[in-house]
Design a protein around this nucleic acid. Sequence first.
DNA 1: GCCGTTTTCGGCCCGACTGTTTTCAGTCG
Length: 570
Amino acid sequence: MENIDYARVFEEIADLLEIQGANPFRVRAYRNAARTVETLSQPLESLLKGEEQRLEELPGIGKDLAGKLRELFQTGELEFLNELRQQVPASLVQIMQIPGLGPKRARQVWDALDITSVDELEQAARSGALEQLPGFGSTMQARVLKGIEELKARAGRFKLSDADIYVQPLLAYLRQAEGLVDLEVAGSYRRRCETVGDIDILATTSNGSSVMDHFVAYREAREILAKGPTKSSIRLKAGLQVDLRLVPQESYGAAMHYFTGSKAHNIAIRGIGRERGLKINEYGVFSGDRLICGETEEEVFGAVDLPWISPELREARGEIEAARVKRLPKIIELEDIRGDLQMHTTYSDGRNTAEEMVQACRERGYKYMAITDHGPALRMAGLKPSDFRRQFAEIDELQERLDDIRILKSAEVDILEDGSLDLSDGLLAEMDVVVIAVHSKFNLSRAEMTKRISKAMQHPQVNILAHPTGRLINRREPYPVDVEELVKVAQNEAVMLELNAQPDRLDLRDFHLQMAREAGVKIVINTDAHRTAELDYMHYGVDQARRGWLEEADVANTYSLAKFLELMQK
DNA sequence: GCCGTTTTCGGCCCGACTGTTTTCAGTCG
Ligand SMILES: Nc1nc2c(ncn2[C@H]2C[C@H](O)[C@@H](COP(=O)(O)OP(=O)(O)OP(=O)(O)O)O2)c(=O)[nH]1
Ligand SMILES: [Mg+2]
Ligand SMILES: [Mg+2]
Ligand SMILES: [Zn+2]
């Protein structure tokens, strides 16, 4: 019964209801609720256990959906979903994953051809039965077959850092087009989401531009998905989709707001506009047919009496309410960072020596750093106690020659299966800061894993829990663990939680960070660099921290060395 | 299905691109 995916259940209900032809607003309610429970900064389970009506206080969760969440929590099942699956084949929702096929056409192939799965649909398309259906032509049939192939290849979402590989060359190419004024990346990339489904680019022009023709002629494009005067999409050879939107220069602000999203944020802002008799779209803010403003984002927010909101916060997770009462957080910036507390050297699995890492940290203006090579439990990469002592002596020597940075002796100590550590208390006592993390034995139950990590955190010499959930984006699920409980332990034991800035970790997640902030637990943003260049991953960590509403004071490595050392006192 | 000091009923964001639609539905952003 542990680990019910509440969001998935609501998503499935939304899909099935939509195929059934239910009221679109009812469908949207389920989709919104799925989003809400997925990204909750208060843990859903503690709300579910509570006696009171706390669940109903969540935006978009009323009596009915709260009841369904409770039923799921208590029984592990949902009668309503089971009944729905009797009425609509559950495998039909897969058909909606194919580009160009939505609820109406899923319904149509089910009704007309008794198709209930992607495989059956593929057969119908191959046999030519599909193009006989009203509304389906040969073009559509071919598109479906292609869509099914792509679905099998499964490009999926791209890590933000992978998207970065393609963004700069593409922008450089687009800038060659005639008639361009602005060119900016919007969408989830601008909101600095940990993964992006595509790249959304906004261009503006004063007198018309040839940018659309130029765009679809990009040599890295594999396919043109759509092409119109204001909006075109291509798929890159790498599989990544790119959407380009072109609007008049005077619509820059409104278009940027629209194209940055998120969708839920847009709907909320437009709803507020509507209450005030305003129409907000990507071209501007309108009163009737009269354009009121739209040149800048500030104007758009201003039209609904809100201050400008950072893109990272635009997720309809309370930022609008916070902005309304002037309580938006002043979120952290890269320049606030004064140190990096996890990195590796050639002593373990790093590529650069301690001296090189120190030099690289000084170049980045850091005032302190910790060298955290692995303990002996990592057999290939780990250090024996004697290696650590050798390294500490080397650090002493390096430190003697430097007065602009403090090198903290440390280690990334492994949390063993029973919650004990792979280095002795004696050795830990020789360190300035102790970082702990799980690196093996992931297949414990949630309760066991939580107990294991909690025990390690209770060790009196431990300061930082690194990459607390162990997930690797697109490669490895987090091990099962109760992050809410870890936050509580961190609070009681004065342990800090790491936000690991490696772009495939970004661990903790944004909503975990919000949870920690609300509990007053300090976060440390570390790059876990395995070479000097990886120290620059810090900005990914800061981006994630911004999405988690963290302010400078919430992040321990924004403090001066003295203050940071003070924070570690138990 | 949710929501509300203008409402407990009647609203719910708004627009672009595609295809076979003869005047616009479906899908997607
Ligand atoms: N008003 C409005 N805006 C939308 C809607 N769908 C998308 N947008 C806007 C907000 C999105 O951030 C932006 C880009 O759309 P995308 O589908 O690419 O979404 P986004 O980039 O947020 O996430 P992604 O990582 O691409 O899945 O377009 C919508 O239904 N209504
Ligand atoms: Mg996008
Ligand atoms: Mg897009
Ligand atoms: Zn590690």
